[in-house]
């Protein structure tokens, strides 16, 4: 029927970026399961997929009582040794019988939640993207806990270079003519609605994780630029406040790096409108200009003092 997911993204709670062996340990959430690591074009480590059992109502825009039973797939990712994500999704399908079966039935279809009774995909999608009421499936809580697993690893020193809230991105994919809709809600909440002509594959979840990562980068850089108070604060102070952005963020922008070829057009269309990369480049230029300007000022002061001493 449809697939729904939620990705939480945060600054990894460590003073510097972490290297691959540490990434492997932080993300080694299951004995005997390998952490998948790719190094190009940017380091990206993915924990094994873990399951969480659920038996509850699904959010529905029409407030219909729709019960689903099954398992949610979750994982953690660390990109560039710097940004951590907790991600969960579930494929919602119609059950063959309208009563709860033994648990082993659901475990034989990992990542699927079966709807007992009638439900409309569009109604569930809208209900989910609006934010679920308390007694409904809570993918956000599951993703939040997976992100906690990475963030609370004893291998991290918890001395992050700056404080920044997590962002959460809820997404839904359905089968249909290709389209993508990205919506900013509050300061931290975003939604993405994707229609894709082919049946669901985990690559779509990876696309949403990549969107969440880049949206977080953009959101965070905007906050850092705002905090720097460019124009109102003294240049040196603004430059100092922008230093963490230069040290930890600017090199991480790599849209679509781990998204399959066939899904690349979704990223490209978002980059045309609203133009994520365009906004990022502008901000990046602003940050670099500030830092450069401050360096020039410092240089000229040094030169002047030098002349006076002669």
């Amino acid at each position: 029927m449809l697939v729904m997911g939620e990705v939480h993204t945060a600054l990894l709670q460590n003073s510097g970026e972490i290297q691959e062996p540490v990434c492997r340990q932080v993300l080694g959430l299951m004995a005997g399961e390998t952490v998948r690591v790719s190094r190009r074009p940017i380091a990206h480590a993915l924990s094994p997929d873990l399951l969480t059992g659920v038996d509850c109502r699904l959010p529905s825009a029409s407030q219909a009582r729709v019960r689903a039973v099954g398992t949610v797939v979750s994982r953690c990712a660390i990109t560039g040794g710097r940004v951590a994500q907790g991600s969960s999704y579930v494929r919602v399908e119609r059950a063959a019988v309208d009563r709860r079966l033994s648990w082993s039935h659901y475990l034989s279809r990992p990542g699927v939640a079966e709807v007992l009774g009638k439900a409309k995909a569009g109604d569930l999608a809208a209900g989910f993207l609006d934010g679920a009421p308390p007694d409904c499936l809570d993918l956000g809580a599951i993703s939040g806990r997976f992100l906690d697993l990475a963030q609370s690893s004893p291998l991290l020193d918890r001395r992050a270079p700056f404080r920044i809230p997590r962002t959460r991105l809820r997404w839904v994919t359905e089968v249909g003519e290709p389209s993508i809709r990205f919506t900013l809600h509050s300061d931290q909440v975003r939604t993405v609605r994707i229609a894709h002509p082919e049946p669901f594959t985990p690559a779509l979840a990876a696309l949403c994780e990549d969107l969440a990562l880049h949206d977080w980068l953009l959101t965070t850089l905007l906050v850092l630029v705002e905090r720097a108070g460019i124009g109102s604060a003294p240049g040196a102070q603004a430059a100092a406040k922008l230093a963490p952005a230069v040290d930890h963020l600017l090199h991480l922008w790599m849209p679509g790096a781990h998204v399959g070829e066939s899904l690349a057009p979704y990223w490209e269309s978002l980059d045309r409108r609203p133009g994520f990369t365009r906004q990022w480049r502008t901000l990046e230029d602003r940050v670099r200009d500030q830092v450069a300007l401050n360096t020039l000022t410092l240089l000229s002061i040094t030169a002047q003092t030098g002349r006076r001493c002669q």
Partner: peptide, 13 residues
């Protein structure tokens, strides 16, 4: 309580 403190520490000074 640990979860709460840990999460708040990420975003608040």
């Amino acid at each position: 309580c640990v979860q709460l403190f840990g999460r708040l520490e990420e975003e608040f000074d």
